[in-house]
Design a protein around this nucleic acid. Structure first.
Lengths: 173, 173
DNA sequence: TATTGTTATACTCTATAACTATA
DNA sequence: TATAGTTATAGAGTATAACAATA
């Protein structure tokens, strides 16, 4: 996912890219929700990176700062759990955000930390959120007024229903 | 993405998981198309892995076999490009599928290969496709008749429009 | 005893640079 | 000169196991 990196190669000297390769049929993939979800998600994240990534802020980090901004003082494990990140992988993320000066670990008791944004973190997330809002509005224009709400609802249904099913499978096993 | 792996820990001895942690508000993330896309995509891939992953077939590999089944004899780089995979990363994928006996490299000229499914590959993809179809139908039931088609169209618009914008950015740079 | 944070580790996915052989 | 496949490498993301300190 690094659409922000330079693209030094931009030859495309010939008008058509490939010989005899108009559009390769993807078969059942073309009607697959899973595949369409992946392609759309990749595109949106690349778009995010090209607009916000220059600030050194990746999507996952953006989500962390937003949650802490919404509720300052949350414990590491609570933030990680809310975002579906394992606490073991969350350690390095907080380390990095702290090293960048956007976030502080404030001791809550002697084994846990309360997470708070620094002033720099508040400024950074405000700036990133403004660009994120612009991106979302652009998507809204693409899909039409009801389209965006409809899409959000469909995605919510899929995420919650399938995630619950996974959890049930785990319990049954 | 490894939902198929065992889940040995299933304690949940206490009725509620966390103290004072009902539902953490995610703020603007709750209305974010990008975040909703990610959560839905993760859920669908986990669902895929829990049903098809036991066969040792991951989503990306599934997509490769499907494309080759649809059009046997395609070159490596054409398949990779059609799926948005860089040809440099595609080499190991083909190696692995070939090692599993699902796919063959047939020399086309002296620098390129035509990809074909083996008999075992045909059987494997037929089996996986049946399960994939069942998964897709389940999503169809979740979203209602028009919902699934609407979702597919929205995802297609997002993927194509944003991907094109990225390409234009690259050209302008 | 259960929770919290942590380290170590490994595997997948993705990205770039550079190379060989061939068209 | 451009294309096809390849290798090497690096950075993210995500998964599990095991541990110390604390509640």
């Amino acid at each position: 996912m690094n659409a922000a990196r330079k693209k030094p190669e931009d030859k495309r000297s010939s008008p058509r890219a490939q010989p005899s390769q108009g559009n390769i049929p993807l078969g059942p993939l073309e009607k697959s929700i899973g595949y369409a979800l992946r392609r759309a998600q990749v595109a949106v994240f690349a778009d995010f990176m090209s607009h916000i990534g220059d600030a050194g802020l990746r999507p996952a980090q953006f989500s962390v700062l937003l949650v802490i901004r919404e509720t300052p003082g949350l414990k590491q494990s609570v933030v990680a759990d809310a975002l579906g990140i394992q606490r073991t992988n969350f350690v390095a993320m907080v380390d990095e955000l702290q090293k960048k000066g956007w976030l502080d670990r404030v001791p809550a008791d002697r084994r846990s930390y309360a997470l708070h944004l620094t002033e720099a973190g508040e400024a950074k997330i405000a700036e990133a959120l403004a660009m994120h809002t612009a991106i979302e509005r652009r998507i809204g224009r693409l899909l039409g007024p009801g389209g965006r709400a409809s899409l959000l609802e469909h995605l919510r249904i899929i995420a919650t229903t399938l995630a619950d099913a996974e959890r049930d499978d785990g319990q049954r096993a």
